[in-house]
Computed example of a mutant assay.
Amino acid sequence: CPLYSLAISTPPWHAMPFLELETSLPSASLPPDLPAKLCSAAAAILGKPEERVSVTVRSGATMLLNGSPAPSAHLSVAAIGVLSSAEQNRAHSAQLFAFLGAQLGLEADRILIRFYPLEPWQVGKKGTVMTFL
């Protein structure tokens, strides 16, 4: 749900998703364009412009998920205004699980997603915080 209607100017902080993917898979087994694909998918899923999405991918991590060292992945999603309800996050989760499963070749039980709703004053940019931009 957008915070503002399309008729009102959308503040720049409204579109600032951060995604951090950490996986035990080696970098050689990841699609070479995974960061760009994740950026595009996240923009579409969260309803944000790609140029506002920040993506970090870390591979080769030593991980244990559900008591097993089998290949796995953790995705952290932090954003302003789009992660504020269970209903929103359920929809985001379904789409992100489908994307990660297809890209990484992992089953859903080997993926964990954490959602972090942010406030504009919690994100710094251009020497200030998003509240003032």
Rank of each mutant, 00 (worst) to 15 (best):
S5A: 09
L6F: 03
L6P: 00
A7C: 03
I8H: 08
I8K: 10
S9T: 08
S9V: 06
T10S: 15
P11G: 03
P11F: 04
P12N: 03
P12F: 01
H14F: 06
A15G: 01
M16Q: 07
M16L: 13
M16H: 00
F18W: 02
L19P: 00
L19V: 09
L21C: 13
L21S: 11
L21T: 12
T23A: 11
T23D: 11
P26V: 13
S27R: 14
S27L: 14
A28S: 15
A28F: 09
A28I: 09
A28N: 10
S29C: 12
S29H: 11
S29R: 14
L30T: 03
D33Q: 12
L34C: 06
P35V: 04
P35L: 06
P35F: 07
P35I: 05
K37N: 09
K37D: 08
K37H: 10
L38E: 05
S40N: 12
A44P: 00
A44K: 14
L46V: 06
G47S: 05
K48A: 11
K48W: 03
K48T: 06
P49K: 03
P49R: 06
E50R: 03
E51G: 02
R52P: 00
V53C: 08
V53T: 12
V53D: 03
S54I: 09
S54Q: 11
V55F: 01
T56P: 01
T56A: 13
T56Q: 10
V57W: 01
V57E: 05
V57L: 03
V57C: 10
R58Y: 02
R58N: 10
S59A: 15
G60Y: 01
G60H: 01
A61N: 06
A61H: 02
T62G: 10
T62M: 15
T62L: 15
M63I: 09
L64M: 15
L64Y: 05
L64N: 13
P69G: 02
P71H: 04
P71N: 11
S72E: 02
A73M: 06
H74F: 11
H74G: 00
L75H: 03
V77P: 03
V77N: 05
A78D: 12
A79Y: 04
A79V: 01
I80K: 07
G81F: 08
G81Q: 03
L83I: 00
S84Q: 12
S85F: 13
S85Y: 10
S85W: 12
A86H: 08
E87H: 07
N89P: 00
N89G: 08
R90A: 15
R90M: 12
R90T: 15
